[in-house]
Design a protein around this nucleic acid. Structure first.
Lengths: 608, 608
DNA sequence: TTCTAATTTAATACA
DNA sequence: TGTATTAAATTAGT
């Protein structure tokens, strides 16, 4: 009993142990002194409101713009820069400092949350698939599970796990927590990233100097492991032949970057080095050779990848130009090659480990100051994907007159990397006959990711019906690593100078393997899971329309026993190790927060 | 402009002078250890809906009961207690935390609103009276003012003062804000109340142990500066010979403590030390002497004063007994003298300044554990009313066969302290011939306050007709400080064992001066304002019925010029200083929120 | 509309 | 400086 109210030891009270202890000599002064340190001194100033404690001055839009801009460049400005900012923004240095602290904390918090969600989704996916195999539930619609509608207790309490009987995976809450805490170990390398010698790609202003027209969205490459959610449009719709609603008008609706309705979210790579890195960037985590290849100017326009708060930053970049005041503060600093402010430094932007395995550091962006960038030489380790320096225009399929064939998969698995289809456009698998390419599209964090597999690289396409013929797997056994691309969404364009920015639609930028631990570069079996009859029909459709694919496809209708199926699916592990956070928390992608999509709601219904 | 945010110099930074030092090799461990303590990660549980953003789970009645109960005891539970609550209520700790945050915000918001309404009412009263003198409008009825119906702008902004033409008192909005924020300064001593050595009066559980019958309503004395609104019956009716509807049945109709229709509200004393403090309380803000006088057991029944959410707390105390689950959580904790849960700690309940001027701490409540109560010895400072250690039974007049004579005043003014009659029983002025006492009754915040003036102390009673004979003032010039009493309302009795609790009706407990800055102890002129012919008739009635008062009353019928009237009414200042927040926001009492009583509606109609 | 759950942000406290 | 926590402001859901 007494243990129930132990209370945090630090702040605990010395006095009372119910022994009518005479409180020693504690005076009000304790209270008084507690209150003094914080606010009295600060609040003396504000003559307007007599509030002494907190003033809670809300930063204005411009202030936020500058702050976010600076944060994009340097998450931890030193006192000097803070002072400048303070003067510039008419804020106290203390406020500046606090703002950056909170901003950093925000990023971390979002990382945590994303991590958690990722794991939860992964677990749910596992449960789902396991449940599929166990009960053979229909994915969309009818559920007659023993557990369904069983524990619909009126209280909407949140810890239903222990109640919901599903004998499988009796996930204990603390077990779950372990999942949450674990990945953070890997995800948090070093908080003091500002002191890392900053290899920088290109300064924003220099980009603007060179391309004064298309400036605003142009920013340096981001920390590869972080993904971003666009403020206004959580997911851009794609226009391939998938039954998703494409909204071409949505690309111009972006408003102010600080849109409360949306939360730019960062997802760190759990335990890998930088991935999803733009090869067009000269960004390196370590000292890089100054002789890095400058990219072609044309590439610049595609350099849309933004760091965690890419959109905010892009916005602020434009502000830096359009706003005369902004130019005073940031641009001169950059021009002076302040190592912190000059470049958009992913390592300073996010707390990713300083390049355990850096991707290709081949091409540098075109800034004239790239020579100034302090570049570390410790990056030449893993050059898995050196040859992807080019930007490929794949967007012919963007026109509606495409005869792509899609596979409505709900899960993509490569190695232990899983990608769930939570929304209509989260996961699109298509075949582009013109390019003889299979392409997996993944929308995440405001960006689109694409993985291409040449038809010639496909050794076989194996359709395996599930045990109950409800779901089926389609395994692509390929002979080489796919190609990886990404595309920043169109909302990035500014409000100010949106005229010419809107021209660069659907520009894919090749990037490095964005899957966890670059598993897509090592595991050459891609497994799609989907509704059996859909998948089958789509495969048949594919074979019919495109003869070249016919030779690859095999149908294995015989329901394979579960154990055997597992053997057939090395990726879809249905065992305890699946819940080892090291393996289960694998998906890099960020889970959409409002994932109340029918897809997720249904398969998990047996949990409730 | 730049001066607005000066900021404290202390916490300023020494650290980084933009030397991009290389981070050595910091470990992840820092991150891991951090994540465990906070609750975000703990929110793992909610797996029902995959929505990560908002779930808006509405708390059930039981949850609310426990929450409100806990809140009544501790408005800011620490993480430990939150955890307990989370387990107990099957809510996430985060939800618990949020609930308390919102609950606190609610209190504050209501405080603000009350404060505002008070001021507005005060302003309106001023305007009303001014208008009376200017135009001689009839108090109830016809209005033909130039400003009527003039500025009925659609926005319900709170700064109507500037629009409403009445030339006098052009209240600036920021001036108003001063009023709002001011009280918070003193009202919030230290947010970390849990760490403050808690001087406690008596633990609830121990009371229950010793007095298992009359337990529930027995609580410690509250922070004197906060007043409370009973949930169900905002104002208890009095049974003195006033034409208000007395409802004796209302004392048993209390329902669930958490009644949405009513808002328990806390009103801090604007700028004074603790006032309206029960002298029977042994509560002290600082270290107390263990030798504090133990109270007589009989006093216990009167120790009904509860802190801000007194009613909820009382209710919850009963819940702690009746509800087995609640008992698990709270009762054992209390029994073990958890400093947070054990006692009803005013300092933890509300944010009052730590007793700048504590009232008499002479008599302690009667619980046998009052000896346990940690009592601070530093309270002997301001003993303005030391001699009021006794509880006086004044309630002989509670019987209907009283021949009290009442004065239907609408305003009571003592010094700069004003009390408006917003509801029928807000302000009752009576003469009790049996006791040869004048008594001003003030109903506020669920408690009744009483101020007594012995007839022998009355030097003169001066009736002064207003300029237009509509309103009149009755000035009581007295020769000594009144006596002050208070009484908790009857709703406080528990549902469970209400048998013997109901016996203690109308027990007045002497207390210290509850007027702002104890002005009633310094200013010996009490001014009543009311409808002229009513006041006059009542005075005449008083003189007729009670000869002993005759010698005191003088009638000054001659309309005195306004200027002169103001001179006669030093309390009713009609000048700019009236709106100095230091003086204007003076009334301690809480204004009923829905103050659309006929009294206020009529005189203020010319404002709308 | 109000009330309330939840989010975001500025700020404080602590280690 | 990071973390936890909170207040204040705000956003929504009912």
């Amino acid at each position: 009993m007494s243990t129930t109210s132990v209370q945090q030891p630090s702040s605990h009270i010395v006095n009372n142990d119910d022994t009518t202890s005479i409180v020693p000599g504690n005076d009000h002064s304790t209270m008084v002194e507690q209150s003094n340190s914080n606010e009295e001194d600060i609040t003396v100033n504000n003559n307007k409101t007599t509030s002494t404690t907190k003033k809670r001055t809300r930063a204005t839009a411009e202030q936020l713009a500058v702050l976010e801009d600076t944060f994009a460049v340097n998450v931890s400005p030193n006192s000097k820069l803070r002072k400048q900012l303070a003067e510039r923004l008419q804020m106290s240095e203390r406020s500046i400092q606090i703002w950056f602290q909170n901003r950093r904390a925000k990023v971390k918090h979002m990382q945590k949350r994303a991590q958690m969600q990722m794991q939860q989704a992964s677990i749910r996916a596992q449960l789902y698939h396991y449940h599929q195999q166990q009960y053979g539930a229909h994915p969309y619609g009818n559920h007659h599970h023993p557990h369904h509608q069983q524990h619909h207790h009126p209280h909407h309490h949140q810890q239903q796990q222990q109640h919901h009987g599903p004998p499988l995976m009796p996930l204990q809450p603390h077990q779950q927590q372990q999942h949450y805490y674990r990945p953070q170990q890997q995800a948090y390398p070093t908080p003091s990233s500002a002191r890392v010698p900053l290899p920088r790609a290109q300064s924003v202003d220099t980009i603007q100097q060179h391309n004064p027209v298309q400036l605003p969205t142009s920013t340096a490459t981001p920390p590869p492991s972080h993904l971003y959610y666009p403020p206004t449009h959580p997911h851009q719709q794609w226009s391939e032949n998938t039954p998703v609603e494409s909204s071409p008008t949505s690309i111009t609706t972006s408003t102010h970057p600080y849109n409360n309705s949306t939360i730019p979210t960062l997802v760190p790579v759990p335990d890998a080095g930088p991935t999803a890195m733009l090869t067009t960037s000269d960004f390196n985590y370590g000292p890089s050779t100054p002789a890095a290849t400058p990219p072609a100017p044309s590439t610049m326009t595609n350099d849309l990848w933004c760091a965690p708060d890419a959109f905010d930053r892009a916005q602020s970049c434009s502000l830096a130009v359009s706003d005369p005041t902004m130019g005073e503060l940031v641009s001169p600093v950059r021009a002076l090659s302040d190592p912190i402010v000059t470049t958009i430094d992913p390592s300073s932007l996010m707390m990713t480990p300083p390049a355990t395995s850096a991707s290709s550091s081949t091409t540098t962006s075109s800034s004239s100051e790239s020579s100034q960038a302090s570049q570390s030489a410790e990056q030449q380790q893993s050059q898995l994907l050196d040859d992807k320096n080019t930007t490929i225009n794949i967007n012919n399929n963007n026109n509606n007159n495409n005869n792509n064939t899609s596979l409505n998969a709900t899960t993509l698995t490569i190695g232990s990397w899983h990608r769930l289809k939570l929304r209509a456009n989260d996961l699109l698998c298509v075949y582009q006959p013109e390019r003889r390419m299979f392409a997996w599209h993944i929308a995440d964090a405001g960006s689109l990711f694409r993985m291409e597999i040449s038809l010639d690289a496909v050794a076989s396409i194996e359709y395996i019906a599930g045990e109950c013929d409800v779901l089926a797997d389609v395994h692509f056994d390929i002979s080489e690593s796919p190609q990886f691309y990404m595309m920043q969404q169109q909302q990035q364009q500014q409000q100010n100078n949106k005229d010419e920015v809107s021209t660069k639609e659907e520009q894919w930028v090749q990037c490095s393997d964005f899957t966890e631990n670059k598993q897509a570069s090592r595991f050459f079996r891609h497994s799609l899971k989907g509704v059996a009859h859909h998948m089958k029909q789509e495969l048949l459709n594919l074979m019919e329309k495109h003869d070249e694919t016919r030779r690859l496809v095999r149908f294995i209708e015989t329901p394979i026993p579960t154990a055997l199926t597992a053997a057939y699916q090395p990726n879809m592990i249905v065992e305890d190790t699946m819940f080892n956070p090291h393996t289960a928390a694998s998906s890099y992608m960020y889970w959409n927060q409002m994932a109340n999509t029918p897809f997720m709601a249904e398969p998990c219904s047996f949990l409730s």
